[in-house]
Nucleic acid binder design. Structure first.
Lengths: 212, 212
DNA sequence: CGCAACCGACAGGTTGTCGGTCTATGGTTA
DNA sequence: TAACCATAGACCGACAACCTGTCGGTTGCG
């Protein structure tokens, strides 16, 4: 008894399974067999919907990133909230994202998931950085920030946070705090923000996250 | 007629072949068969010297990075050259490295070489960043730079240049120039350098490289 | 003669392909 | 209205071709 579904539905089903598996076993560690066994479809079906394993990864990342970007865009657009607060909100939502995305995010940094990591990073640069940069520009027009290159400054900050706060960089609590302080110091310099104007609210955020 | 060589010699031979293959076909695109056929040894021999394919990659990166770091260290130590000039020299040597390393560097950024890229990046952060940071500190004591976090600022700069100036980021010449300008602007801000003090000599370097 | 270096067959796993099969749907006919 | 195809999109699973890593056995050198 073969079950037939609409293409889009099957595709999502496959992406769901893949996301969960990639999140727990990593991209390299997950075989296409794992995926198709998990949902009980045949090999041919998988390759009917996706042209390769990497294509599945791309699809998954696109889906997660679409959600992330949409959410970030919505938050960023709420002009009733002060700019700095909004930036914090967006950043917070990047890492504490709910749903399958969160699990994926955690595993992204492991060395065996290099490809996944790279693709995510690219996505982050292409989609999230511009959103944050818009906020920075808003801050500039309000006299909070001062820089001639808001987009690039944002990219630098985002990229560095992405790489340095990886789990792979296992470091003692003391080192971690030092790194975070340095990061905020540099971020303020890049954005031309007043000393402490970012650091203070950000440190709060980091401490919240640490407790989990 | 079986040829026997000293372990270290064979190891180097394998690393040489691997480097060349990885450089032309990428890490994923190169099979262990390719490597052992290239030098005419048997499967068992390869795995006698290296415990896995990834182990070969690690060995290769370590070798390249060792050379790079040694060269950079030597250049950085020459106190007869002004600090800014020395920084330029070190950076120049990172990308224009001679020998097999150069070919590898070119291919490192392709998407299929994600693992290679990541390992290289890690190496860069761990070994090269401190060397450059030392130079920055020297600059600080000379009043050229002003920052409380020389190491982290250096890391940010290095990381960003690594990612953004990848070939994968194919962009028009105009965009490229704009990005470079923004990069230098941000680097100066991070290091607390006078406007143009880095940008001017750096632009020269970029233009040289462009001509090749 | 002993040990380090080497060999190559082989197990177990992987991705992607391909010809063939099913099933839902919509048009046709009685 | 009901029975009857026809067809295309969704699905299947065997299979080819590869790939990595292992292991018992072999050989040459000191």
């Amino acid at each position: 008894m073969r079950i037939v579904k609409e293409a889009q539905e099957r595709k999502n089903e496959i992406l769901d399974a893949a996301a969960e598996l990639f999140a727990t076993k990593g991209y390299d560690g997950t075989s296409t067999n794992d995926i198709l066994e998990k949902i009980g479809i045949a090999r041919g079906t998988l390759y009917y919907h996706f042209k390769s394993k990497e294509d599945i990864l791309d699809g998954m990342i696109e889906r997660i990133n679409g959600l992330l970007a949409a959410k970030a865009g919505k938050l960023a657009g709420d002009k009733s909230i002060p700019v700095v607060e909004r930036i914090l909100l967006v950043v917070k939502n990047l890492n504490v994202d709910s749903g399958i995305g969160a699990e994926v995010m955690k595993q992204v940094h492991k060395p065996q998931n290099a490809l996944m990591h790279q693709k995510m990073q690219q996505s982050l640069m292409d989609e999230i950085a511009p959103i944050l940069a818009k906020l920075v520009e808003e801050g500039i027009s309000q006299g909070i920030f001062h820089t001639q290159c808001p987009l690039e400054a944002t990219e630098m900050i985002l990229l560095y946070s992405e790489v340095v706060f990886d789990d792979q960089f296992q470091q003692s609590g003391e080192q971690q705090v030092k790194r975070i302080r340095a990061f905020l110091y540099n971020a303020e310099k890049l954005l031309g923000a007043e000393s402490g104007s970012l650091a203070e609210p950000m440190m709060k955020l980091f401490q919240e996250r640490k407790q989990r």
